[in-house]
Each structure stands twice: as structure tokens, then as C-alpha cells.
Design a protein around this nucleic acid. Sequence first.
DNA 1: ACCGCGTCCTGTTAGC
DNA 2: TGCTAACAGGACGCGG
Length: 264
Amino acid sequence: MPELPEVQSIISGLNRTILGKHLNRIDEHRKGTVFNEENYTEFGEIVDISRRGKYIIILTSDRIKIIIHLRMTGKLIYRSREIKTNKHTRATLVFQDGSALLFDDVRTFGRIEIYRAEDIVAAIETLGPEPLREDFGKKYLSMILKSRTAPIKNLLLNQRIIAGLGNIYASEILHRAGILPTRPGNNLSGNEIGSIVNNTKKVLLEAIEAGGTTISDYRQVENKAGSYQKMLKVYGKDFCSCGSRLNRIKLAGRSTFYCVKCQS
DNA sequence: ACCGCGTCCTGTTAGC
DNA sequence: TGCTAACAGGACGCGG
């Protein structure tokens, strides 16, 4: 599942491969993948590629922005010339030089939306702060959490509170911070909130450095796997590094892993 | 305002 | 061995 570090790695890959290229067209191979395409025939060159939360934002010289969300199984794969699609290819961005960017997505939840550059996109507008920026700090998180009774894990998954975390990193961050995922938000001490903030930044930076976490579907733009899966401490594991068996429960409908000895 | 659950989807795996 | 059901989860809409 692409979360912030995976999306960040994809942004890097897109900058290496498609920045500056002239986008001829976007082919949709499966209905319900590309939205608003009918309003646009010309795109121009790719002039900027960025990220907000888990949303990929591609800006073109014709002042068009292409917003891509990969959801769970979406992949963006670059092909320099041999453009072979497969049964899960949902759309293709075709460039003038004969190269292409394939949008593969097994579970078809991902989507591509096209807007004018100046359009306000509600989904992005309502996102919480970027965890790696300074406005995501102890002061901000304390302010948010004081009125929240939901489990901290659920709150970390709420994109309006913090943008970019998903199920894997939420479990990893809470393990590093030594905090049980079930703790109500308004029950955490200042020190604990500070630890969540620090460990969020630490885990995300390490995961970006590793090129993301590849468990099954995620691949970088050049189709390479990331390596942070080797550094996971709890997600998908049976035992903690302390030797205790990990607990596995469902929170917000997602598998949640924690150690009763290391987290309280 | 906030919380939790159901929904969308398909490949993989667990269980009988 | 072969079939079925459960499972994986990001975002969103809805009811309480």
C-alpha cells in the first residue's frame, strides 16, 4: 500500500523519468479510472511533479494538473519504449518521444483526475499537515488530540489530522513511540505526543531513504522494490524484537500489531 | 464535531 | 485435491 514514503519514492522516480516530456494523451483502459479527461485535449510538457499526503500532483505547461491516487494496489511504471500493458493496466500516459507511464492497479481503487492548475481540489484542501514539515509538531498534535476519544491509531490514519500515513507506518510509529494503538487520543501525555511526533518523522525519513516498503504490490517507477520491509518491527510480524509474541487486533477495520511489553 | 461501520475491488491464502 | 470464504485496506458516505 503506497503511503507517504512510497509516494515520495514515486515522485523521485517520476522526476527522473517523465519531467520535461511532452504528454500527448491519456488512454483509459478501464472505465472509472480517469476523471474529467473529456475536458482536455492538449497538455503540454510536464513541468512539475509533487506530492501532498498520498496524492501525486503532476503539473503541465498548459496549466493542467493531473492528480493521481494509488490507493492500495496502484502502480506507476515507466516504459522508455516497449509499452506492453497487462490485464491490470487501467490507464496509460503517452509521451511524444514514444515513452509512457503505465497506471497498473489490481484492485481498481486508484484514480487519475484532471483539473486546471488553479482549480481547488477538495480532497487535497482538507488534508492535515505534512508530517515532515515543521507545522506538524507537538503543539499541533496536542491541540488536535485533546478533544479526541478515538484510538490513537485511528487518529493517525485520519488524513485530515495528518497527511500521508497508512496502516503499516501507523503501527510502526506507535511501536517505536512505545504507545498502545488503542489508547484514546485525549488520554496521551505531552511526552507521549512528543514521542509520536518524533518517531513519525524518524520512521518516515528512514522509509523514504529505503525507497519505501515492498510487501506485495508496491514498486518504484522503474519497477524496483523498496527495502524498508526489512526494517519493519511489528507490521505482519509474529514476534517483537524483545522476544514477546505480538498482539494482532483490528482497529478501524485494519490489522494492527503491537507488543504489550514494549507499548503501554 | 466526532466516531465507527459499510462499501468499493480482485488476487491470495486459509480452512474444510 | 478442490472449492468456498475470509482477508488485504484508503477514502468516503452515512447514521448515531
